[in-house]
Design a protein around this nucleic acid. Structure first.
Length: 301
DNA sequence: TTCCAGGCAGTAG
DNA sequence: CTACTGCATGGA
């Protein structure tokens, strides 16, 4: 792998790379990206099949995107794809001023625009990766969840070597679809979760579930309904995936313990709030529910 | 030992 | 819709 090119992106208003990086570097040592000396880097498979490493860092008032790879011939034609990926990753094309306006008017949340200025919804572009992460994270604490994810990624993902670091691509649907449930038990998956992951991977490998198919559905509710029909995907996972992988703005992760904690400490709601109580709290933020969930999570660590 | 952690499926009401 | 159970792991 060698350096192929460097791109420069203007930082939009109300954007803070440091806030985004802080969230990604909360101390769980995620195995799918590397945070190093103020930069974040991760491997990416381009549409043409080439594997590259994108490394994003701050350079003055801009973002610098360095690209590592093998094939310098074709990389120029992928420039826009790489820019789009980074913009989507950090939700850079969204004007969040209206959200800040609503926060500023709120009795309990008016501190957020200043304290978390420029914090953005961090995306997980890969649908399978997002779904795997959700299933793994169901009902276990985050540090254990990260460990299980690392087991999965280092066992069934693809290592990508560079001079000073070994990255990993998350496992493909084809690889996971070929596993049997017992294969995942040593990686600390429960029986149910093994079945969920393999079932989801098989749907994707068979072409019965894909980003394209979900995006083709007319409404947010249709996409949620389609996800909920799949074994292992409940309300929490459906909302989380639509938020993180599709950048849907109206997702509330009902039942989420982190959300419940934040609502308890900030608004005194709960400890186990009913759907209606949550909806009432979210009512002033129509169209920004996902951002509110994300900002509430931000208050936790 | 008990409780619980960024839940889900199944059943009952 | 809520309320319940059973399912699994591992840390506090």
């Amino acid at each position: 792998m060698r350096h192929l090119l460097t791109l420069t992106l203007a930082q939009p208003p109300l954007f803070s790379f440091k806030e985004c990086l802080w969230f990604l570097d909360r101390g769980y040592d995620d195995c799918l990206y590397r945070i190093h000396e103020g930069s974040i880097s991760k491997p990416l498979v381009l549409a043409n099949g080439e594997v590259i490493i994108v490394q994003v860092s701050e350079l003055g008032s801009s973002l610098k995107v360095a690209v590592l790879g093998q094939d310098s011939e074709r990389i120029e034609s992928s420039t826009q794809e790489i820019i789009d990926y980074v913009k989507e990753w950090f939700d850079m094309d969204r004007d969040i001023a209206p959200f800040y306006q609503l926060l500023g008017q709120h009795r309990l949340l008016h501190f957020m625009p200043e304290r978390y200025a420029g914090f953005r919804l961090i995306g997980i572009r890969s649908l399978l990766e997002a779904l795997c992460w959700c299933v793994i994270g169901q009902q276990i604490n985050l540090s254990f969840a990260h460990r299980v994810k690392r087991n999965l990624v280092t066992t069934y993902g693809t290592p990508i070597e560079t001079d000073d670091y070994t990255y990993h691509l998350s496992p493909s649907a084809e690889v996971l679809a070929g596993l049997s449930r017992e294969d995942l038990w040593p990686l600390k998956f429960s029986r149910q979760k093994s079945d969920y992951i393999i079932g989801i991977a098989r749907l994707m490998a068979e072409g019965k579930l894909s980003r394209k198919q979900l995006e083709a559905l007319p409404t947010f509710e249709d996409r949620k309904k389609a996800l909920l029909e799949i074994k292992g995907i409940g309300a929490w996972t459906a909302n989380y995936v639509l938020m993180k992988s599709f950048a849907e703005m109206r997702c509330i992760t009902y039942g989420d313990t982190g959300l419940n904690q934040a609502l308890k400490s900030i608004a005194g709601i709960g400890p186990k709030p009913k759907k209606e109580e949550i909806d009432t709290f979210f009512a002033p933020f129509v169209g920004w529910e996902s951002y509110l969930v994300f900002y509430l999570w931000r208050t936790l660590s």
